[in-house]
Structure formats: structure tokens, C-alpha cells
């Protein structure tokens, strides 16, 4: 079963990718829209290439990032309740984006928003690593992350609170809900380099995460350096989750629920969970983004909202199952 899991998840992602390409506001059949993707010169070709393709690609990229970072974070902290947001990077990225909207910069230069978000994510990484100290264990990392997260959240609230411009406030609130609509290839090219670096860093952690199953002391005695792993984890998470937040806003629950959902299927090995959770994340984000367009096509339903609506009951179900196992 474990052997078939990755191909099955990859197939699921491929199917949802096609679904994401072919479902949308402009009505067109499956074959018609796929043909237009390659050669169509008319409006359908434009819609496919300029709107739906980047949207589907972003769905895959963001899902991979959130799923992978969630699995790595849970593995490192040895806690199934951990998620990528725990180190404060997504809140800091959101703060950067909110500031750029509030100051009117993003209206003048649209690329300022993701750039500010990435810049604040980098700032948060520096702050978290400084606070956590060079020798500290996983607890100091969590505490530092919570502190940075709380600070970024407070500052975001302050920006909203002091906002003199109701339109900016409206835009900020909607941006914070998280969405993939109206994104272009520019967003893909902004996020992709950071995400590729992040994926590369996080995927090297597999063996070390397995060893950490036995605790930091035992892992260190087996030649694994928890300190080096922590650095790679924070940098990798910042690169890919920071980039995801920068282009799509805050999308929660993926990094929390997906590793949890797939852990049993991979025999709970943290290294095996990394690729599985990445693919699972991509499938979940694509599915939710398709659902956004199917359920109420005429309203701009936000992806982050749908994700929370899917994620929270799923999480409740997982808690119930875990409780059944413990008792």
C-alpha cells in the first residue's frame, strides 16, 4: 500500500490539475479548453493561458509547499499539532503584505506586495533564529515562533485599526482570507524560485527527521545535528511558505491536516511522509480551489475560507480517531 501511495497521490494531483484547468467562469468543454490551452488564439486560449494555467500551477506549488513544510515541522517538533505557521513566518509575511496595501504601494506597483511579504518573512526568520538561540532545542523554537507570530499579528491588527481608508481595510481583509483568483504568471515566477529552494532544503531533512523519532540526544549520537536541521527547517519553511503567503495570502490547515491524514498510510515514518504530504497538500489545495469555483461560481468565495471549512471538520474527525486509539 505504501508503495502505491505516491503514484496514487500524483495521479490525483494530475486529475485535479486538469479539473482546475477546465472548470471556471468561462464555460468550455474538457477537450475544447485543453486544446485552447496549446493553440487557441481566441478568448478561450487567453483565458486558459493567462488565467487558469497560472491559477492551477499556483495551486500545485502552494499545496506542495504547505504540505511539505507541515510534514517537516511536525517531524522536527515531534508533534502532530505543529504546522508551518508555528514559526511565525506566515504571520510576518501577511504583515508585510498588509502594510504594502495600507500604504497604497501595492496599488501603484502590484509587485511590491509579494516583495514586502517575502521581506517580512525573511525578517521573521532572522528574529526567530536569534530568539531561539544557537543551542536551544525544539521548545525554544516554538516559543520564539509564537512570540514572532503574536507580534506580527498585533502589528497587523494595529494597521487595520489605524487604517484611515475603508477601501484599503476592505482589501486587506479580503487579501488575508487567502485566494488564488486573478493571479498571473508573474506570481508564478515570483514564488517558484523561493519554493524550489525551500523544497530542496526541506527534502534533505528526511533521514534526520527519522532519527529524531528517538529524541534529540539519541539522534545527535547517531551523527545527526539537530541544530543544523533546525536551521535548514526554518530557512526551507520560510522560503516556501513565505512565498506561498506572498502570492496567495494566508491559507491555513493544509500543513496541519495533510500530514496527519497521511501519516498512517506511510507507516508514520517522517521521511516517507515528506513527499506524500507534499503531494497530498497539492491535491487538497487544488480540490478546494475547484470547489471555490463550483459551489458558488458567481460569488468570489475565498480559498482560505473554504480550506478552513474543509479543514476544521477533518481535523475534528482526526482528533476523534486519535482519541479512540489512545483509550
Amino acid at each position: 500500500m505504501t508503495r502505491l501511495l505516491l503514484p496514487a497521490l500524483a495521479l490525483l494531483v494530475a486529475l485535479l490539475f486538469v479539473a482546475s484547468l477546465t472548470i471556471g467562469y468561462t464555460p468550455a468543454g474538457l477537450g475544447e479548453s485543453l486544446a485552447a490551452l496549446g493553440t487557441g488564439d481566441g478568448p478561450l486560449g487567453l483565458v486558459m493561458r493567462e488565467i487558469r494555467l497560472p491559477r492551477a500551477l499556483l495551486g500545485v506549488m502552494i499545496g506542495l509547499s504547505l504540505g511539505l513544510a507541515g510534514a517537516a515541522m511536525q517531524g522536527y517538533l515531534r508533534n502532530p499539532l505543529a504546522e508551518p505557521g508555528i514559526v511565525g513566518i506566515s504571520s510576518a509575511a501577511a504583515l508585510g503584505a498588509v502594510l504594502s496595501i495600507q500604504l497604497g504601494l501595492s496599488a501603484a506597483f502590484p509587485l511590491i506586495l509579494p516583495a514586502a511579504a517575502l521581506g517580512f518573512a525573511a525578517l521573521a526568520v532572522g528574529l526567530v533564529l536569534m530568539l531561539a538561540g544557537p543551542r536551544g532545542g525544539s521548545i525554544t523554537l516554538i516559543l520564539a515562533g509564537i512570540a514572532v507570530s503574536a507580534l506580527a499579528g498585533a502589528l497587523t491588527s494595529l494597521v487595520l485599526n489605524l487604517s484611515p481608508n475603508p477601501y484599503a481595510t476592505y482589501e486587506i481583509v479580503f487579501w488575508m482570507l487567502g485566494s488564488l483568483s486573478d493571479r498571473s504568471f508573474t506570481h508564478v515566477w515570483i514564488a517558484l524560485p523561493f519554493m524550489v529552494v525551500g523544497w530542496g532544503l526541506l527534502l534533505t531533512l528526511g533521514r534526520g527527521l527519522d532519527a529524531l523519532t528517538l529524541g534529540e540526544d539519541a539522534a545527535e549520537a547517531m551523527g545527526v545535528s539537530p541544530r543544523r536541521m533546525r536551521l535548514l527547517l526554518v530557512l526551507g519553511t520560510a522560503a516556501c511558505v513565505g512565498a506561498a503567503t506572498a502570492v496567495a495570502g494566508a491559507i491555513g490547515f493544509v500543513g496541519l491536516v495533510v500530514p496527519h491524514l497521511l501519516r498512517r498510510a506511510v507507516g508514520a515514518r517522517p521521511s516517507a511522509l515528506l513527499p506524500a504530504s507534499a503531494l497530498g497538500g497539492a491535491a487538497l489545495v487544488l480540490a478546494a480551489d475547484v470547489a471555490v469555483r463550483l459551489v458558488v461560481p458567481d460569488r468570489d468565495l475565498k480559498l482560505g475560507v473554504v480550506m478552513a471549512l474543509i479543514g476544521a471538520p477533518l481535523f475534528l474527525h482526526l482528533i476523534r480517531r486519535t482519541r479512540g486509539e489512545v483509550l
Binding site: R78, T213, L214, D217, R269, P270
Partner: peptide, 23 residues
Amino acid sequence: WMPQAREIAWPVSVETVVALGRT
């Protein structure tokens, strides 16, 4: 090295735990 804290963080199989010694 066998630390005093007997930590097995995830519900992995016995064989998987023992195989970690080969790291």
C-alpha cells in the same frame, strides 16, 4: 548511545525503530 528518556515519537513499526540504528 541509549539515553534514559525512552522516546519513540511516532507510531512506527518495531522494525523501523530498530533500523534507525543503521543511520
